[in-house]
Write a protein that binds this DNA or RNA. Structure first.
Lengths: 303, 303
DNA sequence: CCATTGCGGTACAAAAAATGCACCACCCTA
DNA sequence: TAGGGTGGTGCATTTTTTGTACCGCAATGG
């Protein structure tokens, strides 16, 4: 939609922090860009950038303008999506920010299932930590967030929530594998590998450990749960993950055991969107499918 | 804002029902207009007008596009208003659709009071019946509605409400003027002049009369409450109006008496806006002032 | 301390886009 | 069947936008 071009340029300038850089990014001359910005400011009635030596920065008015643009763009794409729906084309794009645990099993299955019915719908899936996922909802960078233990910013609206207990991941021959349920102290006493602090699993572990005046002291700390799953095969230590990110391997080499609820409360896996936003048709339908799938999944692991 | 020009043209075409007429209205050639519309449809990905012999009409997709435009325009003007507020200019425009009763006394006083503090703010005030007022909120044609007994469409959000009893208006020498409070049957038995059916006062009267198996049979039926107030001076009949549209004249020629609540329940005078819409700063502030004024007014007539 | 570098901004010509004019095919109506 | 209305289109013209080459300025780095 060409009538939003100026806003796209404004966004690029805000991102680049410099008109000349932004001009390069947008394949345009700096002079043309400068004039578009200046003309917009004149027409709009106020400056939207602070001119600093060495670049520019959005001022508060500019923040408002940028937010208006993002809301407009989002609403327009919603309209286009609804129109495509009207015409029976059922096209669209769904953009999701999610925790790592959803990557290996849950989301691939759900996306494939959705695309089987609506082949015209495309997806973007990005791993984001709890804060990032919510921030991207607010900037209309993604339509949905599916995160473990979100931080609950003001604009976060919960669509569906299921509880998930933190599980211990280890080799089948690990001493602790014999027990059906583990105590937190056993886990902390044995060598362990843990995710870094910005993830919900670690957050819950830290909180529970501190309550028992203990500390999580991982021998390896990582941002990758995939690393955790694979590392425990090579060195016989324990790792942590939530069940939705785990599946018994065919060779039985890995086992998972929940940590007793006495020590560690269940965390929440939450599907959310930006508060008050009208999602595009495809995203809204997919969110509904996800909510159903989460509900069924939760029912299945409880039975 | 020039980037919305195409949408303005679309709106004009939708209003005119013909591209050539719209082209005339917008001081542009039909050819230019046709090409802009066609280019927009190509870019948008779908037709937004039905081509009929003898003109064009918005199709459902077009309705969505037009609604998007109105929402966008409204949000943009909200942003501009907020920015002006940031800059301490305190400019803006407030657009109100209201019932006739508010015209003579209440709104002029409140608007003057507001403008005394914010001289940069301009107003448009239009008399609308109950359905129109709400419909104009939905199309972003007005920011606020202040109506007696609204019909409550889905998108109507109540900001403040006060009860108002239907009053009888008559000359001081009318026989019924002797009583402090009138019964409905007395009013229906005496010659009366009444507003037409689309107004809340008549709606309440009709409803109450039918309950008593009676009929409102006005000797003059009018859409103008001003006519009612003046007519009862010339022919000694009774008329109806709500208190907020009435004030004792200096010469004591007119008197007002409430109809007993046993016969006629109080109606609601309601200040509302479009559901979920973020109003421009000036409109939001004025709505708050109106709510306070209504509350004070209600308290004063009860004491 | 002065040359260099990168910044936003601007004059002028070239390129691109929008517009106006004349005209077409079409459909309804008188 | 003729006439007036509709949406749509080729072409020359006008308006707008862009690119090139600059300017003045402030920070930076030898």
């Amino acid at each position: 939609m060409r009538h939003l071009q100026t806003f796209r340029l404004i966004e690029a300038v805000a991102r680049a922090g410099s008109m000349r850089k932004a001009a390069g990014d947008m394949n345009i001359t700096a002079s043309a860009l400068v004039r578009r910005i200046n003309r917009f400011e004149a027409e709009f009635g106020a400056e939207i950038f602070e001119r600093l030596p060495g670049g520019v920065r959005l001022n508060p008015a500019g923040e408002l303008v940028l937010h208006h643009y993002r809301a407009t763009r989002s609403d327009l794409s919603r309209v286009q999506s609804q129109v495509a729906d009207l015409a029976g084309e059922r096209r669209g794009h769904v953009s999701i920010g999610c925790s790592q645990a959803l990557i290996p099993y849950f989301l691939p299955r759900e996306i494939a299932k959705y695309r089987a019915e609506h082949p015209g719908v495309t997806f973007s899936v990005n791993v984001r930590d709890r804060a990032q996922a919510e921030q991207e909802l607010a900037s209309y960078s993604s339509d949905l967030a599916l995160v473990f233990e979100p931080v609950y910013l003001v604009d976060f609206e919960v669509v569906h929530v299921i509880p998930q207990a933190v599980n211990v991941v280890m080799r089948a021959d690990h001493p602790l594998a014999a027990k059906k349920e583990l105590r937190l102290r056993d886990c902390l006493d044995t060598p362990h590998i843990a995710p870094s602090a910005k993830y919900g699993v670690r957050h819950l572990l830290d909180f529970a450990a501190r309550r028992g005046t203990r500390n999580v002291s991982p021998l390896v700390e990582t941002e990758s749960f995939e690393l955790i799953r694979h590392y425990v095969i090579h060195e016989n230590v324990i790792g942590f993950q939530i069940p939705i990110g785990l599946r018994d391997p065919a060779d039985g080499s890995l086992v998972f055991r929940p940590i007793s609820e006495r020590d560690l409360p269940d965390g929440n896996l939450i599907l959310g969107q930006m508060r008050g936003r009208a999602l595009p048709v495809a995203s809204a339908r997919f969110a509904m499918q996800l909510a159903t799938a989460l509900k069924d999944y939760d029912a299945s692991i409880r039975s």
